[in-house]
């Protein structure tokens, strides 16, 4: 007698599920970049504790993965907000539009520096972006001179630049799926790569070739993909004083007793230098809001207000305690106005 009852209960449970799923969502769903994740989570937690709304759910999917989920459509089963450690691309905007996500609000939250660091046991290094390019690119200009590219021959830092120590080139960094890696390649390697006149000229004549040269990291073991976990990189640097690591500024900030950031282009990676825009390897962080969801999912407007409040993203806000580099006053004002007016995203013609 009991068994049919259990079966009926199970069947009932299974049948009732879709109706539950279609009911309204009472929490904000956020996806996106693992770099923005530590900042977004702090705001979410504050928001959840100080308002009557539920704490937003935040998934760390990477910038690309987040935008993909975000652009899948409008409706409660799709995320409301996606974080990105780079700007949304034209192709992604098009994809969003195709799925009905036409109204997007763009908010820049601040900056993040990418540091090249080593253990405190070793000396602090001073390098240029050109050194980084020569040490890490797959193909570099022939050291003998001339305008041809050869397979990277450099094995030791001293060969790259006589002022650097005579140790093996060994750099631990994030894998290609990471937004940090994208930004590092774009800002550091391409920045150094452009210093060679003939490569810079390639940008006009052979854009694809230029990108390949400037954006391809060597694969002969000098650059070690150390996974997405930046804590692991810090630990490995401690164990190996000769190795360098590439990671976000917040990890340097939290581990100042263990690692030191290298000076790049004569600028040390400090909070002030990144905030003033002097440090060359820094990038803006963003999030994107689906405007169609504002009003349908409770709390989005209030969440935006919390994020854009001075106590969060201001120069003394709690986000700076977590390592976010705040925007200058004028920029903060602009994005706050955008949030208030819900200005639609416009990509400049690039």
């Amino acid at each position: 007698m009991r068994k049919p009852l259990i079966a009926a209960a199970l069947a009932g449970a299974v049948l009732s599920v879709p109706t539950v799923a279609q009911a309204a969502r009472d929490y904000i769903s956020i996806v996106g970049s693992s770099t923005v994740y530590p900042f977004a989570t702090v705001v979410a937690e504050q928001f959840g504790k100080t308002t009557r709304f539920k704490t937003p759910k935040i998934e760390s999917t990477g910038s690309g993965g987040g935008l993909k989920l975000f652009c899948q459509g409008v409706g409660i089963k799709h995320p409301d907000i996606t974080n990105a450690s780079r700007r949304i691309k034209k192709s992604e905007v098009d994809k969003c539009a195709k799925n009905g996500v036409t109204e997007i609000l763009e908010v820049k939250i601040g900056y993040d520096g990418i540091v090249v660091a080593n253990s405190k046991k070793g000396p602090q290094l001073k390098m240029t972006r050109k050194d980084l390019f020569l040490a890490l690119a797959k193909e570099v200009p022939d050291p003998k001179g001339g305008e041809q590219l050869v397979e990277n021959p450099y094995k030791r830092w001293k060969q790259v630049n006589a002022s650097l120590p005579d140790v093996k080139i060994e750099v631990l960094g994030p894998p290609p799926t990471s937004g940090t890696r994208d930004a590092f390649v774009e800002l550091a390697l391409e920045g150094g790569c452009k210093k060679f006149g003939f490569i810079k000229a390639m940008k006009k004549s052979d854009k694809k070739g230029y990108k390949t040269v400037c954006h391809t990291i060597r694969e002969d073991g000098a650059y070690v993909e150390a996974g997405e976990n930046d804590n692991l990189i810090v630990q490995k640097l401690e164990a190996n004083p000769n190795a360098l690591g590439v990671f976000g500024f917040s990890f340097l900030d939290q581990n100042t007793d263990k690692v030191q950031g290298s000076v790049v282009d004569n600028v040390a990676p400090t909070f002030d230098n990144i905030a003033d825009g002097l440090y060359p390897i820094s990038r803006p962080l963003y999030f994107y809001v689906k405007k169609a969801h504002i009003g349908n999912v409770p709390g989005i407007k209030e969440f935006l207000a919390e994020f854009a409040s001075e106590k969060a993203w201001g120069p003394d806000g709690y986000l700076t305690d977590k390592g976010l580099i705040p925007m200058p006053d004028a920029e903060r004002k602009k994005f706050l106005a955008d949030i208030k007016k819900l200005t639609n995203l416009k990509l400049a013609s690039n």
Partner: peptide, 28 residues
């Protein structure tokens, strides 16, 4: 995912122990 509220049922967003370990291991 980062989920602060303790889930109240099998339909609310939740994470599990090994995932919590993974997320904490990745925190600065």
């Amino acid at each position: 995912a980062f989920i602060v509220d303790v889930p109240g049922g099998p339909l609310e967003p939740a994470t599990v122990l090994p995932v919590q370990i993974f997320l904490w291991a990745d925190s600065p």
